[in-house]
Structure formats: structure tokens, C-alpha cells
Amino acid sequence: MIKVRKPGLQTTVQDNGRNGYYELGMPPSGAMDKYSFHSANLLVGNDENAAVLEATYIGPELEFQEDLLIAITGGELQPKINGNPVDLWQAVSVKEGDILTFDFIKQGARIYIAFSGGIEVPEKMGSKSTYTLCGIGGLEGRALKEGDVLHTGEMKISDVKIGASIPEELRPTFSKHNEIRVVMGLCSYRLTEESKERFLSIDWTVTPDANRVGYRFKGEALDFIPREQPFGAGGNPSNVTDLGYPIGSIQVPAGIEPIALLHDAVTGGGYATVATIISSDLNKMGQIKSNEKVRFVSVTLDEAIQARKEVGEKIEKIKEILK
């Protein structure tokens, strides 16, 4: 049992996501940075998709009421057990009565706290991930609050040595200036050539409006090609007949501010989508904070698939190391 003494900011239970229900308008939810999420689970001997805590900017304060193996990965947020610093990206043993706290975040935006056995909460549509808009998954469909109690489950599949860690070269690095790779397309034909070029050449600033639903960026206005709007689309040149939005897709309502849709996002709507963040870079996107910069870099589909494979290979390497 784990007692929540302080909830932190928007700390939720997440796993690999509620995949397969997009057709119903159900976004997948799940960990924003899957690489850190899988790593945390592997460090405590769990199935890589076991449920963990995802905390944003401010970590929770937890009191352990049993002996456990835990691991914390993701952004640089110094964890402390009973006030003593412990390492990130490492299997840490805690005893009954120990208290986990965090300092302020230095780099990155989100951390993942895995507990040996995983967090046990009821599954909804095959996932334990919290989706707060509909109030499903996780702990009563909401973020943690003070006084909550978490139970661990049966997702442990192997033994990992206390102190085992993921080597430096397999940990993500963070920066205030980021390149995020995208595949251009979807409805990018609606942008003028000049705006398409500007979209890929300026540094966009992440606004405070950045969360699990999506990130909004400030930069400069983009222009859509004027046209007589097709029937059903609505009046603004950035409107299209309502269509599906891929996870990671970027839209620019009225040409004002681009919005990248992430794991808790709306699944469709009436704005032209112009590019999609590649799946491997969604991890990085989830570690970017408000006021940091993003440059979108256009890649081909095969480059995107290659990048995805490389992430998979790194996870395999971690499994090998922890064996």
C-alpha cells in the first residue's frame, strides 16, 4: 500500500493506453513519454506496460506502507527518500514507513514512478490509464489527491537487482531548444507555400496551454489559401468538413496558433491538420515545458518508421542489461 501525502500537480495513473477505441471518439490516454514509462517498469521487473504514476512539473509525496522496489524515470526531478537524494533511472528499494519527496523540476516536464507489481486499479476498455475528461481509468478517473491509497498488483514478471540502473547513453537528454520531427501532409495543401515553409523554419514557443490534451504554440500567423469553402466545412479558411485527427497531428485554427494534439486529445473536428509528430518524438514532446522552443523538422515516412524502430531497439537493450 502507498499513501498519497501530497498529490503533486496532475499526477495520474497511466499505462500503455486505451488503444483500439478511437472510432468511438476515445483517445488512447497512456503515458506521454512511453520510453521513460517502459524503462521505469523494466527497472522494477514489471511487464513494460504495467500502470505507473505520471507526474507533471511537481512530484507527489508518497508514504510506503510496505517494502517495495521502485524506479523513477523521465525529467530531471530529484527524488528523495526520507530526505536523502536517490538516483533517477535506478531500481531503488524502499521500506515500510519511507517517504518519497521531490525537489523542483530542472529539465523535462514529466516523471514516471513505477512500483514493483504495478499499480492495481480496475481496467476500463483494456487499460488502467486515467482519462479525466470522461472520468475513466486510474483512480476514480481523476488525478491523485491527498489521502488517496494506491495498491500494487501482479505485473511483476522478473527479478531485478536493487541498484540496477539504465546507463547514461540510454537516458534521454533535455534541452530548452528542441527539434520535433513531423510528417507533413493530411490537409497541408490548405496552407500557402510560404506558410508551409515558415511552419518548418521558425522557433515556436510552447505556451502555458500545454498538457496531456495538447500543446499550443506561439510564433507567427500562418495563411490558408483562400477558397470558396466546401459544403459542410464552416466559414473559416482553416475549417474543413469535420474529420479524424491523428494522435500527434498539428492544426492551426484560424491560422493563429498551432496546436499539437496528444494522448488525451479530441479524436476529430473541423480544423485542417497540416502535419503529424512522428510516434518516436511524442516521447520528447511530452518532456517539453511551457516557454521552451520547438522547431518542426519534416521527415519522410520511412525516416519516421526508422526512428520508431530505434526506440524499440533501445528498449530491447535495456531489457538485456537488466536481465
Binding site: V183, G185, L186, C187, G244, P246, I247, T276, S279, L301
Partner: peptide
Amino acid sequence: YEHGGDEFVF
């Protein structure tokens, strides 16, 4: 026929 990143076809 359009690609929405590596996971989606629109």
C-alpha cells in the same frame, strides 16, 4: 491518401 505520421493513414 495521406500519412498522419508513421501510425495513421488518412
